[in-house]
Simulated assay, not measured.
Amino acid sequence: MESGDRPALRVVLLGGFRLLAGDEQVTVSGGSERLLSFVALCGQAVPRTLMAGTLWPDRPERRAYSSLRSALARLEGAGRQILDVGATEVRLSQDAGVDIEEARSLARRVLDPDTPTPVRDLSADSVESLSVDLLPGWYEDWVVREAEDWHQLRLHALEALAEDFIAAGRFADAVAAAGVAVRAEPLRESSHAALIRAHLAEGNQAEALRDYERYERLLETELRLRPTPLVSDLVAGLRAVAQP
Rank of each mutant, 00 (worst) to 15 (best):
S93E: 09
D114G: 11
Q94R: 11
R80A: 14
I82T: 03
D84H: 13
R80L: 14
D99R: 06
R91M: 11
T88Y: 14
P113I: 02
R109Q: 13
L106Q: 01
A103K: 00
V85H: 03
G86R: 11
V98G: 02
A107C: 15
I82Q: 00
S105R: 15
D114L: 10
V90S: 00
D95G: 07
L111M: 11
V110L: 13
I100T: 07
R74G: 06
Q94E: 12
G77L: 07
R80D: 06
V90N: 02
D114Y: 10
A107Y: 01
R91D: 04
G77E: 08
A73W: 05
I82Y: 04
E102K: 10
V90A: 07
G77F: 08
A78L: 02
S105D: 11
V110P: 01
S93F: 04
T88L: 14
R109K: 12
G77P: 09
D99T: 04
L92P: 00
R74T: 11
A71M: 12
R109L: 08
L75T: 02
A103T: 09
D95V: 06
S105W: 12
I100H: 10
L83G: 07
I82A: 03
S93L: 02
G97Q: 03
V90Y: 05
D112Q: 06
T88A: 15
R80I: 03
I82F: 05
A78C: 09
A103Q: 05
V85I: 15
E89S: 09
A73N: 12
Q81D: 15
E102H: 15
S93C: 07
D99Y: 10
A87Y: 03
L111W: 10
L75Y: 07
